[in-house]
């Protein structure tokens, strides 16, 4: 199914102040794949994500979603196909109540009242947040906010889910819930994160960025075992693959950890 392809071809981007944030990045993500984009702070992860739904336009090179290159003319379609979950849910939940917020997307798509209602109910149920519908966003806990933010995107029926740091700032239980959700979704997933244990569980493929360049692109287990690559990109293997400092337990290979 070529329809859900996400591809970057020699993607370069420089900010107006001249900082080159992405240099010749090329990759192709196929339908149903779950891919993590990892890298140190400032490696270009967020800049890359911004290109996937047209908030930034490449300085040179192209981004392709499905069969179409992202241009100003097809932004609407692109944004319907690519659902983006922001790192800070406060930026994403801007309506007075959770219900209104989840309904925002479907209403903009021009759905009928009954359809909107069904979409909202389904999306909230998918993240186990049906009971939060009437609450204003500021009364939610961090984990609840994150789940609702995911619901706002699901309600749009995107083919591709893009998530910026989905587990950042969550307590272990809420993190576990979000991981459960991510694993349950059959969408094509593109996730940036510093939580490499989560990446090891959720993503089968990893793209490593360093200083704006694509340094590696391959199966998660293989890349996480390559310590010299990780060290060169200012990263560390996930904790589950590290030797335990407390009990002396040897590192587990990824297949056992996942």
């Amino acid at each position: 199914m070529s329809h859900h392809i996400v591809a970057a071809d020699a993607l370069c981007f420089s900010y107006p102040d001249g900082t080159a944030a992405l240099k010749e990045v090329t990759f192709c993500i196929h339908h149903g794949e779950s891919v993590a984009v990892i890298g140190a702070n400032g490696a270009g992860k967020s800049t890359l994500l911004q290109h996937l739904n047209g908030f930034l336009t490449p300085t040179s090179g192209t981004v392709r979603i499905g069969d179409a290159t992202v241009t100003r003319d097809n932004l609407c379609d692109v944004r319907k196909t690519v659902g983006m979950v922001f790192q800070n849910p406060d930026d994403q939940l801007f309506m007075p109540t959770v219900y209104e917020d989840v309904a925002f997307g479907p209403r903009n798509l021009g759905m009928s009242v009954a359809d909107v209602e069904r979409k909202v109910r389904d999306a909230l149920a998918a993240v186990d947040a049906g009971h939060l519908a009437a609450k204003p966003p500021y009364r939610l806990s961090g984990g609840e906010k994150k789940r609702v933010a995911i619901a706002t995107v699901l309600a749009m029926d995107p083919a591709i889910l893009v998530m910026d740091e989905p587990t950042a700032g969550l307590d272990p239980f809420a993190r576990r819930e979000v991981i459960g959700l991510l694993k349950a979704f059959s969408h094509t997933k593109i996730i940036t994160s510093h939580d490499l244990d989560m990446v090891a569980e959720v993503c089968g493929r990893v793209i490593v960025l360093h200083a704006g360049q694509l340094r590696a692109d391959g199966p998660t287990g293989q890349l996480f075992a390559d310590r010299s690559l990780l060290a060169a990109c200012h990263l560390e293997p996930p904790l589950s693959m590290q030797h335990c400092a407390l009990c002396g337990r040897a590192a587990t290979p990824l297949s056992a950890a996942a």
Binding site: K80, T152, M156
Partner: peptide
């Protein structure tokens, strides 16, 4: 960022409310 979040979800300049 909020404006981007709105654009992401199909905002075209007018708020559709029930």
């Amino acid at each position: 960022r909020v404006h981007r979040a709105m654009l992401c979800r199909g905002y075209k300049g007018n708020m559709v409310t029930q």
